[in-house]
Design a protein around this nucleic acid. Structure first.
Lengths: 248, 248
DNA sequence: TCAAAAGTGTTGGCCCTACACCCATGC
DNA sequence: GCATGGGTGTAGGGCCAACACTTTTGA
């Protein structure tokens, strides 16, 4: 079935189950192969991509809605999720629904709550739903064109991520349980958008006293095998209460 | 007219003009007499206070709505306003509208967008509207009981203010054009909730290079007359792009 | 003259930068 | 052994806390 028909058929259900005029869009970040990636969905029958999103059931709050939307899309429970901005421009969906009837649920004016999510890349199984014909991780250096104002939503999410790097458990949620110092540094460099000095990064991280050095090293790669670390979750959470010192 | 009748009479207008299920609540901060104050409104005929708020016209975006709401309440234009959180709990207005009919506009489920505002205390003229019988500045150390979840909204706003102290022009918007170093320090101490060392505060502030020392001093008070300063707005804005160093 | 507030000086320590040096590994 | 990347050492400077000192003012 084509997307227009699908929306028309589902319109009534929208009006019945969801709060009108309110939507959620999620910027889901993952870290893999030394690159930061974002989850995007290709709109069925259209050559354009979108952030994964959805609507708010009349029986749930925003956080429940966002978790449900991401669970359906990734199979993952208890995703690290954060509301960061609301997008409310009058013409934010302008253009896309021109050929649709005005009464169609999807064509209404939607105020969208932007969430960003951090997931362990390796634990996600992507789901393609009826309204999409692809769902993929894209490197942030190679994002496709995004529908409506989803580009701005992504920009806002990355900016928020950058600002919260010293105040939220971002490394903890993006990295797998065991990781090396160079991997952690790479993550910081990508989020901050600049190179960091290796030696100084090491000592600064260790001084935070949130890492546990394991008795293992990452073998297999060329060159010297790096030490493996994991986060001391309790100390990490504790340190975040005051925030780390800034100045990257 | 009592508040119940008023809401009943205005209900139809609500449904006509505004987006359903969406409201705005504002935490308006002002600084006066060395204390941080918040604007609160007493609900007509009820012994309880609320944050100033309102609804979103079908023809405006959130920022326009928040500005309109505050303009009507304070007479001030171009208020410094920032969206900081969305409050969406299912039972957030529970209790208050028990005696009202279900179809009444005000009794619907509202998702509320929280804004905080910073205003120059001296430039505000408070307005009491039909739904309130008082509108006052209250010291944050002496806030009255607030309706619904407005207490949490206030908490969230203050926490946001604290976090953004080094990233947003908070001093600029809360202080009058000319101010003294001790006044600025007092403001910082109140927002941060702790005493700061005088000498160190001076040097740190001056090192930021965002202040202009004026050829005047604040006479009149007892003791030594302090120097007057004003912000170098351009340098201030410029410095904020990178954020000030943290560590208060 | 005195107390209190405003403004300035001083000292030691920590963290940050920059760069240099060693170690481990695969080719 | 040699290039490359990982881990550690070091010297200089800036910021910071803490505290002491001086100056100015009204009572």
């Amino acid at each position: 079935m084509d997307i227009k028909k699908l929306m028309e058929e589902n319109s009534e259900l929208g009006w019945e189950d969801y709060l009108p005029h309110l939507s959620i869009d999620c910027v889901v970040f993952g870290f893999h192969d030394a690159t930061l990636k974002v989850l995007v969905v290709k709109i069925k029958d259209e050559n354009i991509w979108a952030l994964p999103g959805g609507y708010v059931l009349k029986t749930e709050n925003l956080s429940e809605a966002a978790n449900r939307i991401l669970r359906e899309r990734t199979g993952a429970e208890n995703i690290y999720l954060h509301q960061f901005c609301v997008f409310s421009d009058l013409n934010r969906s302008e253009g896309f629904f021109e050929k649709y009837e005005d009464a169609i649920w999807n064509k209404q004016r939607f105020i969208s709550i932007g969430f960003y999510a951090l997931v362990d890349f390796s634990r996600v199984n992507l789901v393609i739903d009826a309204f999409s014909d692809a769902c993929e991780w894209k490197s942030i250096n190679d994002l496709p064109e995004l529908i409506m104002d989803h580009g701005s939503i992504y920009d806002g999410a990355l900016e928020t991520l950058r600002k919260q790097l010293n105040h939220k458990p971002i490394g903890l949620n993006l990295l797998p349980e065991k990781f090396t110092m160079p991997e952690l540094q790479k993550l910081y460099e990508i989020i901050l958008g600049k190179k960091l000095n290796r030696g100084n990064f090491y000592r600064k991280m260790l001084r935070y006293d949130i890492l546990v050095k394991l008795d293992e090293i990452r073998k297999g790669g060329a060159h010297k095998a790096p030490d493996l670390y994991q986060f001391d979750v309790e100390k990490y959470q504790n340190a975040l209460k005051n925030g780390f010192n800034e100045g990257w």
